[in-house]
Design a binder for these strands. Structure first.
Length: 230
DNA sequence: GCGACAG
DNA sequence: ATCTTGTCGC
């Protein structure tokens, strides 16, 4: 089953959260994975605006067939507000609850957000990877930091995203002539592998399957709780 | 000081 | 993120 070890407290002020990121960033390891990956997890959360209740979910799929092999959804609470650069403090606590309910132990995790493409190089994918002590990377729909040139319009093309002289991620075209997604390594993985895995998770949509299915899962959870029906 | 700013 | 219908383009 999937587990994780407690790294630190979550009830922090935004200021304390930034300070914690400055100490945690040095534990992050960006490197080429040794063992091949067989399964991948996608995670996401959903919520009603102005409400503290959040629906967190994780979907595990086989990398070779993209078949879903497990889903885990939980209803939790997020007390930390959304602040650009501190997303992990709002989303990870609930995601850990969903993770703990997993029967399988995914080989790598795809987060909805960034990894090193972050002002302090420790986005949700890096922070999450540290907690899970597992290879993790981020795939975001918009940019937080980093400058880049537009990649060629055909699927598979990508351009490096740079921030203060560092290549922090890549603008990757997952579909012909469609806005690219922004990927970056989180922990225990490198940019090349991050790009390859994202392309391997292609299901015909801009958003790769792990994240796309996790999004559908948590959205259905939220709707189910909203209506007195099924 | 001003503008930017993952989900 | 969420609130929402139709509509332009391949």
């Amino acid at each position: 089953m999937a587990n994780y070890t407690h790294l630190h407290d979550w009830n922090l002020t935004p200021s304390e959260a930034v300070a914690l990121q400055q100490t945690l960033r040095y534990s992050i390891r960006i490197e080429q994975p040794v063992a091949p990956f067989r399964t991948i997890a996608g995670c996401d959360i959903s919520f009603n605006k102005f409400e503290e209740t959040v629906y967190a979910g994780i979907v595990v799929l086989r990398l070779d067939t993209l078949e879903t092999i497990e889903e885990s959804g939980v209803v939790s609470r997020a007390t930390f507000p959304y602040i650009p650069g501190l997303l992990s403090f709002r989303e990870i606590p609930a995601l850990l609850e969903a993770w703990a309910n997993l029967e399988t132990d995914p080989d790598v995790v795809m987060f909805d957000g960034h990894g090193t493409a972050h002002p302090r190089r420790i986005g949700i994918a890096s922070h999450g990877g540290l907690w899970l002590n597992k290879p993790a990377f981020g795939c975001g729909k918009s940019v937080l930091v980093g400058k880049f040139d537009q990649p060629a319009p055909e699927q598979g093309n990508w351009t490096p995203m740079r921030h203060y002289g560092d290549v922090v991620g890549a603008a990757l075209r997952t579909k012909n002539k469609v806005t690219p997604v922004y990927v970056s390594p989180g922990h225990l993985i490198d940019l090349q592998t991050t790009i390859a895995l994202t392309l391997q998770c292609d299901g015909g949509y801009r958003i790769p399957e792990p994240t796309r299915r996790a999004h559908l899962l948590v959205n259905n959870l939220r709707k189910a709780a909203k209506d007195p029906q099924t």
